[in-house]
Amino acid sequence: MLKQYSFEETAVQTFDDKTSLAMKTENLQVFYGANHAMHDADLAFPKNQITALIGASGSGKSTYLRSLNRMNDGIATVTGKIWYHNVDINEPTVNIYEIRRHIGMVFQRPNPFAKSIRENIVYALRANGLKNKAELEERVEKSLRGAALWDEVKDSLDKSALSLSGGQQQRLCIARSIAMEPDVLLLDEPCSALDPISTVKVEETLLELQKKYSIIIVTHNMQQAARVSSQCAFFHLGHVMEYTPTGTMFSNPQIPVTQDYIAGSFG
């Protein structure tokens, strides 16, 4: 039997005006039909930092993440405000395709296209109007280097992306996202289908990438959250319960529900 925790008792940090923010949500609600999956999420994400979203399965963290680049369009109803560069991108009039070029996403299971490694990266660039061959080649190299994959694939760019290992595929997906030169990178449990060695590689990649991008990562793995993130938000049954710097979250959680979750004596 799951313990009952009060949803009133929360500890969510806010940032002062001096912190530059990548994104911010106000009063975000998500509904799957009649099912209210996310309640009142007010979170702000500092620029060039990694923010981890943790919580049990069904806590709403992936649902929340997918709302940030409007991937829930047509799947769920999202209300509230999502601020990005002083624009509420949750408005129906916003060009979602444009938004997704600025807010990239990497998914739980590696999902490279059934194309060559090079084509995986240049396909979307070309579709967006970048035709210059030299420039495309440059982007391929830059993004593969960024995802720490270049040395492993530089001689086989024309091979099928599906011939890569799971970890390489996931880094290719990261490369594909950063080739669009987004601002924000959303990662939805990017390592849950990977072995420990590939996981370490992806984590190292993320630590390197935060210099250029703001990263929001959903993870089941608390060690991973502790290793890579600067800020950490804990979700429980569709509520944001606690949001603090990662160090605080793991050494000194503020409220009982987080304390129990971190200690593993949840429910």
């Binding site: 991937m71 395709y97 997704r100 990239g104 996403m105 999902n111 059934a114 967006n128 594909r176 996202s177």
Partner: peptide, 17 residues
């Protein structure tokens, strides 16, 4: 797989593309 569609959409490609 649905994940292929999500990959395309997440890169800002239109549904048609």
């Amino acid at each position: 797989s649905r994940s292929q569609r999500e990959a395309g959409l997440s890169l800002g490609l239109s549904k048609w593309k």
